[in-house]
Design a protein around this nucleic acid. Structure first.
Lengths: 201, 201
DNA sequence: GCCGAAGCAGGAACGCGTTCTACCCCGCTA
DNA sequence: TAGCGGGGTAGAACGCGTTCCTGCTTCGGC
């Protein structure tokens, strides 16, 4: 009775590594929430997740990969939360502004966490490109909910453009060149300009 | 004959430090042009400029400050070069697209240098905010030349928004999520959407 | 039962941005 | 004339991301 040969010994091991991985991401989020990007130190993440530093690097080849994994989770959660309540507004422009305002308010509620994750998103490491694409897709999906159904010309162009603005504004906010109100204002302006354009063409 | 007490001994010293400073920025640009951000190593910059590491840090409190100083020069030069020839195009949208296409083509001609400078621009260090503002002002001035004279509603909003898109697209290009053609395409789309919007309102 | 592979722990080592120490040279002022 | 402060040189030292090494345990195949 070599108990180790149970039918799902493999899945049990997989479960443990999945739990380890989750602990690492959670530890990164907790550290990021108190102090931002520079508070996420790989030795601390490993210690808090109770794994060795080498294990952390086995799962995430860099600090930015780790934070992007966290951001992927956060962005998906944000998208799902946003989907709970449909955007309000008479036209596409107003609805886009509403969606961005709500999403940004949610992000601004945990400034250090958001700053850390956005920092990772705008870091130039080329080998994180696929992860960034995935995240941008999620963010664009959030915007898309605002024009779904409305008859706009080139909805994809509008969504892409507004997505860029969102990223740049978040980046400026993280960098300290924009405060929360200016961020909201600039997003509203952009949403209205693009919405106006699209609904007319 | 204590010749050192010449009338302009002070200005002579100032000249030397100005020359030193210029050597440091030039060294940074040269290193950035071959290998990008990570090739700009502070010890190498100091060695190439023939100053001590401490001197480099006396003038520029961080690597990003140094690169932003370089970017300020480059951006001003780009603006002046762009001003030589007025943008072509029938309406504001076409002229904005033209200006961005030309500017981006110029930047793409020295990809490693541009990547290094844009990396510094999007780095989150809060104490570089004033320099970033200055640079954004220059970039916005480049866009402004395209709508100067045209009657657009909210020209400032259009310029700010398009400036954000430009930054985000450059950042994505540096990060490897966009190639040069996609960058040009997305800028053209954004310029037309925003130009259309503005000329109608 | 034995072996090689894979995953992990623990921790040293390396690279580069940044800081600190010690010293020098010069023009200024008491 | 002595001392002081600013800016410079040379180089060690520190912090943190990243890599590497050594040893241990478990598992699937022989």
């Amino acid at each position: 009775m070599t108990g180790s040969a149970t039918p799902d010994a493999r899945s049990e091991r997989d479960l443990e590594t999945a739990q380890r991985r989750e602990r690492m991401v959670d530890a990164a989020v907790e550290l990021a929430a108190t102090g931002g990007y520079e508070s996420v130190q790989m030795r601390d993440v490993a210690a808090r997740a109770e794994v060795a530093l080498g294990t952390l690097y086995r799962h995430f080849p860099s600090k930015d990969h780790l934070l992007l994994a966290a951001l992927t989770e956060q962005a998906s959660a944000l998208r799902d939360r946003m989907a709970q309540r449909p955007p309000e507004g008479a036209d596409a422009a107003a609805r886009m502004a509403d969606v961005l305002r709500r999403a940004t308010r949610a992000l601004a509620r945990r400034p250090d966490l958001t700053a850390a994750l956005v920092t990772a998103l705008t870091s130039p490491e080329a080998d994180t490109a696929p992860h960034k694409h995935e995240i941008e897709t999620v963010l664009r999906a959030i915007i898309t909910t605002a024009i779904d159904g409305a008859d706009v010309a080139d909805p994809d162009g509008v969504v892409r453009t507004l997505g860029y603005v969102w990223l740049a504004v978040l980046s400026a906010w993280v960098g300290g060149t924009l405060d929360t109100d200016q961020m909201a204002d600039d997003l509203t302006i952009a949403a209205h300009l693009l919405g106006k354009s699209a609904s007319i063409a």
